[in-house]
Amino acid sequence: MGKRRKPSPPSRARMAVLTTAMAGGAVLAAGTAHAEPTPSLASVKEQVDKLNEEAEQSVEQYNGFQEKQQKLQGEANRIQEKVARGQESMNELRTRLGAVAADQYRNGGIDPSVQLMFDSDPAGYLERASAQNQAAGTQTALLKQAQDEQRKLDQDRAEATATLAQLDSVGTELGARKQQIQSKLAAAQAMLNKLSTEDRAKVNAQQAADKAKAEAQQAAKTAAADRASRSADRPDMSTPAPPASGRAAAIIAFAQAQLGKPYGWSKSGPDSFDCSGLTSQAYKAAGVRISRISQDQWNDGPRIDRANLQPGDLVFFYNDIHHVGIYIGDGKMIHAPRTGKNVEVLPISAMPYMGAVRP
């Protein structure tokens, strides 16, 4: 039998080719395994809208804590001024008590009967003794007054301490809410930044299309209600509200003057507004004071049925009432939407409608 030939080892060139091919395959496999799927524009828009809505919820919470902080600061200042006045009163009482005590010490060291026996001027002594007894009565009255003042001072100091502690707690919560808002807005912006200029334009175009669609739907509903009302020969409760007059006209005039101004969270003008900042300032322009935040504005007046809406009414949205606008008639409102957008006119059907209030 012939000898079996051993297989010859691969040449260096062949080894290099194999190594390169294997390495390339490994890189390709790794790249495929770790590649992140590109989100669709619809997905990006949905996530950005959700983040902006969550940010707006936090804005109204922030506004609430900010308003509470301002009230607590005013209360703390008032109590601290009261404590300062009480301390001044106590210092004055201590000075007067010290003077009475010193006078009694100087004049009360000898028995009164002995003083009268040896006094060269008995009539003068009796006058001085009478004055001394009066001073003792004054001291008793001053001591009681001092005790009452000290008790009040201690109570005021305890109240001031509790108020300042509450103020610190609210300040901490305010900072947390601010961080929460900034984080959500930054996350939304980061998602948009990943898109190309063309895709960002598509997202903006989609938002404009959604708004136009909502307006068309509202117009169709109004027209259908109008036809149904006429055919049934009954008063139409869904026709456009009558033109605004008086207070309502002033409210709407202010809101219209802000159209196009940017949304600014926790802002009440004059250059930017959040939703409740716009509504509170519009009512203020008409001489009506309402609360600063939307959840409180919800309780600033009687509830109004949707069919009975009138221009100037406050309209509220979402289950937690975190968004509010000003009804202007014809199924539309003026509102400050969210970060990145401007004060605008929008159909009230464009968002989850919860109800209306007429302050």
Rank of each mutant, 00 (worst) to 15 (best):
Q166M: 09
K152M: 15
E149Q: 09
A146H: 05
Q155G: 08
L153K: 04
G137H: 14
Q150V: 08
R157S: 01
L142R: 01
T161P: 01
R151D: 08
A141W: 04
E149I: 08
Q147L: 15
T161I: 14
Q166K: 13
L167W: 01
K144F: 11
A160N: 05
L142Q: 05
Q145I: 11
R151L: 12
T138V: 05
A162Y: 00
Q134Y: 15
L142D: 03
A160V: 02
D154Q: 05
D154M: 10
L153P: 00
E159L: 12
T140L: 11
T161S: 04
K144L: 13
K152S: 13
Q166G: 02
Q134S: 11
A146G: 05
K152E: 13
Q134F: 12
Q134P: 03
D168F: 05
D156L: 15
T161E: 00
R151C: 03
L142G: 01
L153Q: 00
Q166A: 05
L153G: 01
A141S: 03
K144C: 09
Q147P: 05
A136S: 10
L164M: 14
D168C: 05
L142P: 00
Q155T: 10
A162P: 00
L142H: 03
A158W: 06
K144R: 12
T138M: 06
L142F: 06
T140A: 13
L153C: 04
Q134W: 04
D168P: 04
K152Q: 15
K152W: 09
Q139F: 00
Q155F: 10
Q145A: 11
T140M: 12
T138C: 02
A141M: 05
K144W: 11
Q147F: 15
A160P: 01
E159I: 13
L164I: 10
A146Q: 07
Q139I: 01
G137Q: 14
D148P: 04
K152I: 08
A136W: 06
T140G: 08
Q166D: 08
E159M: 12
T138N: 05
R151S: 12
A158H: 07
A146S: 14
D156W: 10
K152Y: 10
L167R: 02
D148A: 14
Q155E: 06
Q147C: 08
A135V: 10
D148V: 09
T140E: 10
A135R: 14
A162M: 01
R151G: 05
A146C: 04
Q147N: 13
L143K: 14
Q147Y: 09
Q147T: 13
A160Q: 02
L164S: 04
A136Y: 08
A162Q: 01
R151M: 11
T163L: 09
T140Y: 11
Q155K: 06
D148Y: 10
K144Y: 09
Q145P: 06
L167D: 00
L153A: 07
D148T: 09
D148G: 09
Q166I: 03
A141E: 08
K152A: 12
